[in-house]
């Protein structure tokens, strides 16, 4: 009895900020340590190294990269096409998810399975598939290779599943009686969609959009084959970084890489803000 009381006392005398009591026990402290170490080795230290390499020549590395017209064109292309494709996914993703969740039709299970293929197949294979269908020897007579639309096409192909897969479970869990309640209160189909369904799935759309954008700006394999990587025209950042490295220009490669890192962070934060605001407004 006494020992129990004593040990309890020593625990409550913990230090740290008042009001925020750490829930760490010895076991979970070890867990947190392992997680942080692993995360640092894999993510934090390499990222810091990139930024350090890029900053090796002070701000000049960044200025040079941004003022280099070819790099600037690559950044504009990659970010622009990624935003475009994410925008398309924001519209198409929820529609596909809706069809998969709400409609019953022959082949639904198959479609549900096929959605993941662009995500699961090696990107170079995806590039090959697209080149076969929309390249110079297109059986459809549509040749987009070496043009801007090819970049958007390739990015749209690989990012298709993201929003579908984030929205699908949320739509599935939306209870039918919530929509029925709105209907019996006089809300028409559009009102129900706008005021009940959409606010419920916006966080999922935002999460999927963030993933989709992140994947789009980092895409390499699919683009190499179909876009032709023409400087100033269809050269993406990832391809440009590679050519910097092949040319021995580590600093420029790192500078370009860390600029993309900044862009990715900015977009993810922006989507998070949008999602919070819309979800709250109702």
């Amino acid at each position: 009895m006494t020992t129990a009381v004593l040990s309890q006392d020593t625990r409550t005398v913990g230090r740290g900020r008042p009001g925020v009591r750490s829930t760490l026990t010895r076991g979970s402290a070890l867990g947190l340590g392992v997680a942080l170490l692993w995360f640092s080795l894999l993510v934090l230290i390499p990222l810091a190294a990139i930024v350090a390499t890029a900053g090796g020549e002070g701000l000049r590395g960044y200025v040079d990269t941004l003022t280099n017209p070819q790099s600037w064109a690559a950044i504009k292309l990659t970010v622009g096409q990624s935003l475009l494709v994410t925008g398309i996914n924001v519209v198409m993703g929820p529609i596909i998810a809706w069809v998969l969740v709400r409609d019953r039709f022959w082949g639904r299970g198959l479609l549900d399975l096929v959605i993941d293929i662009p995500f699961a197949m090696p990107t170079i294979v995806a590039g090959l598939v697209l080149l076969g269908l929309y390249g110079p020897q297109s059986p459809l007579g549509i040749n987009v290779s070496n043009s801007r639309p090819s970049v958007a096409l390739a990015l749209a192909f690989v990012t298709l599943p993201f929003i579908v897969r984030t929205v699908q479970p949320v739509l599935g869990e939306l209870e039918a009686d919530v929509e029925e309640a709105a209907a019996s209160l006089g809300a028409g189909r559009l009102t129900i969609l706008r005021r009940i369904v959409l606010p419920a799935i916006v966080p999922a759309i935002a999460a999927g959009a963030a993933l989709s954008f992140a994947r789009a700006i980092s895409e390499y394999g699919t683009l190499v084959l179909i876009s032709g990587s023409l400087p100033y025209k269809t050269e993406a950042v990832s391809v440009r970084v590679l050519s910097f490295i092949e040319g021995g220009d580590r600093t420029s490669a790192a500078a370009l890489a860390s600029i993309m890192l900044g862009v990715a962070l900015a977009v993810i934060i922006a989507l998070d803000v949008v999602q919070r605001r819309v979800a709250r407004r109702g």
Binding site: E175, D177, V178, E180, A181, A182, A183, S184, G186, A187, G188, R195, I196, P199, A200, A279, R280, G282
Partner: peptide
């Protein structure tokens, strides 16, 4: 349609609008 009937309906599992 349910919209036009002007009936109030209360569901077993409340059917609350969670985000409001």
């Amino acid at each position: 349609s349910p919209q036009k009937r002007n009936v109030g309906f209360v569901f077993q599992h409340y059917a609350v609008f969670k985000h409001m």
